[in-house]
């Protein structure tokens, strides 16, 4: 299976209200083993998946938000967040977890994984993919 395709996971749901966010993350983690060219997009309520300060003790559900910070270890470092979705919800990059990855080619320099992109930029990025998985 030597084919490398560009996979984009489009996340549009908030965490906890439904299971889509969590089960989507499970696909991303399993998919990492296939060594494809993976990117994640967070749009609409999907941006809430990356929110800082999630505390689920009161609802008795597992807080899976720390898993996002492990994505860099899986070589998943293209995380696109749509600017318009953030703005519509009164959020900025500061409200999201700081996700980083280490660049092997630059002496493991720590780099930001999240890129805030406009709708138009994201539309172009989507056009460049081979496979789009939507959750």
């Amino acid at each position: 299976m030597s084919v490398t395709k560009k996979f984009l996971y489009v996340n549009r749901r908030a965490p906890y209200g439904t299971i889509y966010a969590w089960e989507s993350l499970e696909v991303v983690l399993i998919g990492a083993a296939f060594e494809q060219d993976v990117a994640l997009a967070f749009v609409d309520d999907g941006v809430y998946q990356l929110a800082k300060g999630q505390d689920t003790k009161g609802i008795g559900m597992k807080n899976f938000s720390p898993t996002y910070s492990a994505l860099g270890d899986y070589d998943i470092n293209k995380i696109y967040v749509e600017k318009e979705s953030l703005e519509a919800r009164g959020l900025t990059l500061e409200d999201l977890q700081h996700l980083v990855w280490e660049d092997e080619d630059e002496d493991w320099a720590e780099k930001d994984s999240i890129q805030v992109v406009t709708s138009a930029e994201l539309a172009d990025l989507m056009e460049q993919q081979d496979v789009v998985l939507s959750f």
Binding site: M1, V3, K5, F7, E26, V27, I30, G31, A33, F34, Q36, V131, L133
Partner: peptide
């Protein structure tokens, strides 16, 4: 879940 990724590939 690997079966889904494989299907995509």
């Amino acid at each position: 879940l690997g079966q889904l990724i494989e299907a995509g590939i």
